[in-house]
Amino acid sequence: MTERYSRQELFAPIGKEGQKKIAAKHVLIIGAGALGTGNAEAFVRAGVGKITIIDRDYVEWSNLQRQQLYSEEDAKERLPKAIAAKQRLEQVNSDVSIEAIVGDATARELEVIIEESKPHLLIDATDNFETRMVINDISQKYRIPWIYGACVGSYGISYAIIPGKTPCLNCMLEAVPLGGLTCDTAGIISPAVQMVVAYQVTEALKILVEDWQSLRNKLVSFDLWKNQHTAIRVDKVKKADCPSCGDNPTYPYLSYDMQTKTAVLCGRDSVQIRPAVRQDRDLEELAELLAKQGIQVEKNPYLLSFMADGHRLVVFKDGRVLIHGTKDMIEAKTLYHRYLG
């Protein structure tokens, strides 16, 4: 036990004092895909006091190439990623308290988590800008730092956003970007993921041990295949009239109108539909209903799945539905209404 963190304590900028601080901290990881699993394993091995990890998806075979906490068994069982991650993380370090949330990281859901459990740091491990803008507003509203990280192909980018200090994502983007490359169109190699994870976790450790002076303060990007590396000081991008971090913030991405209830999932050829009002679904009842129509249903305690019109529909207990084999939201909604009312 005393040996466990000895090498990290020997590293002077952390030391025994830093290790105590790390052990007293709570990190919320939003997303349990490639970046989420990489970050989570690093924090758990480093001895963070508590990790909360939220994800809406389940493990599939195409995840195993880069999502380091998952096994073939998880893919066979279609285990929710948050659950599979928790199981593996507990094997890695039983001292760390790990909370897994199978759900959509909406503004409302994240605000509830933050008000209840008061994390010290938010890690972006999402696959879309919409959720990142929500994280950005939440970070400003509750004054909690967050670390942006993203990757596609062999390219990656990261930046640590500290409320009251650095510009925020809204200052840099000005709007949610439309289009652009995704895992769907450009693929992804695991070293690009690992590099972003390394940047995120390093800045995170500085924040957790409160070594603010050592923060990089630069927007960093790289392309491992093209052998490029860039870092830009972006302090001047901070805008006094930014609606997220300016003098009179309105946190626009926390308002209900800004939230879509249908979303195409990155790299999955799938659409997620989320009911307007959150309502748990009775999976037993649904399974019976479908079985009566002669539909073959596969089920575990967290979700059920079945084939319909050449598409796989996966129904989660929290009411969300994934419709596979389409990127067309209208078609997805049609199938949703056809089979699930």
Binding site: L35, D124, D127, N128, A150, V152, P177, A186, I188, G267
Partner: peptide, 10 residues
Amino acid sequence: VEIVHFVGGG
């Protein structure tokens, strides 16, 4: 010139 472009994957 330094260019950093934002991506959404992860």
